[in-house]
């Protein structure tokens, strides 16, 4: 049988402005393209992350007040950036799923969720490990920390909700709505340190001014942030590829089982499909 018939919802040729988005909607094309791109994302991600962290851990100078505890920043700041950026990507996938019914957006959102939750957990854990020796407290309920904790719970809620329905499409719909509603937390996280007084320090790197950080600390931070971002993208790509192939596998097995039930043919193939399922 032809593999292209196995994809559940059939991709209709879209018209107008949606055409560009839907060029990458075909799962077969996504698999080919992502397979080609993946090594060029994963390898630089690994190399840059290691370079940034080794530089930050061993060669960057200690801070005049924080001492060596400043080195936690090289993990914490990229994790915080990825927690927010990952959620923005989740919201973008949800938007294109709800509005344009993009066939890959639901799968991508399903796979971004746990990775983003991991980044948020890393951000919270490393922040806590920095806060204890520097501030004198593992945790405080200021606006920045609380809004990031809310982000973590939004991720967990999305993970649970998308997997709570028997019908994956309904789970994806519910998850997409949650993701879009939760996106209101992103500007709150970003501006919490400016809108309210918090224990957490305001942004060091801003769009408007020069970073208030020594260049010898900024470079390793930049490398590890770039590397971890590429690593995040690579992990999401790999998981989405796996999800597309798993869906194709389920569809193939279901189609095959239906055919066999109808024709009562091919003992051999039946054993194969049964053994794998």
């Amino acid at each position: 049988m032809d593999a292209s018939t196995a994809f559940a919802p059939p991709v209709k040729p879209p018209s107008g402005g949606g055409r560009n988005l839907h060029r990458f909607a075909n799962p077969g094309r996504f698999l080919r393209l992502s397979g080609r791109v993946l090594p060029f994302v994963a390898l630089p991600g690994l190399v840059l992350t290691l370079a940034g962290l080794v530089w930050g851990l061993l060669f960057a100078p200690a801070d005049w007040q924080q001492g060596d505890a400043v080195r936690i920043m090289y993990v914490h700041v990229p994790a915080a950036w990825l927690a927010s950026a990952g959620y923005a990507a989740l919201a973008a996938c949800s938007l294109s799923s709800l509005v344009w019914r993009h066939p890959l957006a639901d799968l991508a959102a399903l796979e971004i969720g746990p990775v983003g939750a991991g980044a948020t957990a890393l951000c919270l854990a490393t922040g806590s490990l920095w806060g204890k020796p520097m501030w004198g407290a593992w945790w405080v309920w200021d606006a920045r920390l609380t809004s990031v904790l809310v982000l973590f719970f939004l991720y967990l809620g999305h993970i649970a909700l998308t997997r709570a329905f028997d019908d994956p499409a309904r789970g994806a719909r519910a998850g997409a709505i949650l993701a879009l509603v939760g996106a209101v937390d992103l500007p709150i996280i970003k501006f919490s340190v400016d809108w309210w007084n918090t224990l957490h320090q305001p942004a060091t790197i801003t769009l408007t001014g020069a970073p208030t950080m020594y260049l010898g600390m900024l470079w390793p931070l930049f490398l590890s942030a770039l590397g971890m971002t590429l690593g995040f993208v690579a992990i999401v790509l790999a998981r989405t590829r796996a999800a597309v192939m798993e869906r194709r596998l389920r569809t193939l097995l279901a189609t095959r089982a239906r055919q066999e039930a109808g024709q009562e043919a091919g003992q051999e193939a039946g054993q194969e499909a049964g053994g794998i399922a």
């Binding site: 100078p61 200690a62 801070d63 005049w64 007040q65 924080q66 400043v70 920043m73 520097m134 501030w135 004198g136 407290a137 405080v140 224990l199 320090q201 305001p202 942004a203 060091t204 208030t212 950080m213 020594y214 010898g216 600390m217």
Partner: peptide, 11 residues
């Protein structure tokens, strides 16, 4: 609790 500022510089 000590509040850290947004400046990072070596000694």
């Amino acid at each position: 609790l000590a509040k850290h500022d947004e400046a990072y510089m070596p000694k």
